[in-house]
Design a protein around this nucleic acid. Structure first.
Lengths: 120, 120
DNA sequence: CCTATACTTCGCCATGTATCGAAGTATACC
DNA sequence: GGTATACTTCGATACATGGCGAAGTATAGG
């Protein structure tokens, strides 16, 4: 029950489910997620901690950057939840916009993107 | 997204997911749910309203009693969510205990059960 | 009608949560 | 080492949520 609740609470917040769907297309570093959600770094960091605690994301540190990705081998509960969320929101407008934005962010130069968190 | 969030928020509370699993075995009236959860009537009523708003339960009024049940033809989102919750918690200890308690409550005499909400 | 029963709604309170900015940590580069 | 970048943690705030009891509504039965 505890695992179920940590997963459903994590995925019942709009920002966090958007993050999970971003990561469905591959890993991202925190500054890219900050850019996509347009939230403060501290806020995103807290969301990532909640997702991590629910075992919905894994982390990888490389130099100055911290990358998050969906688990390579998610537990059955987490895996099913992610799959269900993805299917449920497949046709959502915001999610479609997000997918395009994520594509652009992945192509963008990271140096330029992350400096001062991309706020130009 | 709104529908997704209302469903996941509804199902990310322990009391509410327990209610949904109770109803998987058939409809129950509010006083029976009150008995099973050992919560105040007003609290249960609020939970039922949240589940109803998320289209996770339907209601039927018969005399003094209000019965709740899972939707006969749930929307694809709600149906999938309920199925997923049921599978995810199939082996949960609390849920197993609940299933037995629900069986007993269904057999019990309603007059005796509901009077003063069963607090003897 | 009047009472009792079965909820529901309202008002309140304690706790939890999403957000931010500021301060702290860690890494890279000069 | 010093500075800049990329986070994370801390502290504060505003709002949402879960719980209760009291009061309101609706129905059944004398």
């Amino acid at each position: 029950m505890r695992e179920y609740l940590s997963i459903t609470k994590a995925l019942s917040d709009e920002s966090r489910v958007r993050i999970v769907l971003f990561l469905s297309a591959g890993e991202l570093c925190v500054c890219q997620i900050i850019e996509l959600l347009a939230l403060a770094p501290s806020t995103v960091s807290k969301h990532m901690a909640i997702l991590h605690q629910a075992r919905l994301v894994e982390t990888r540190k490389q130099g100055r950057w911290v990358y998050y990705r969906l688990p390579d081998a998610a537990g059955p509960l987490a895996g099913g939840a992610i799959r269900w969320a993805r299917e449920s929101l497949a046709k959502d407008k915001q999610v479609r916009i997000d997918a395009k934005a994520a594509k652009a962010v992945r192509k963008a130069d990271k140096e330029e993107l992350c400096a001062r968190y991309g706020r130009s």
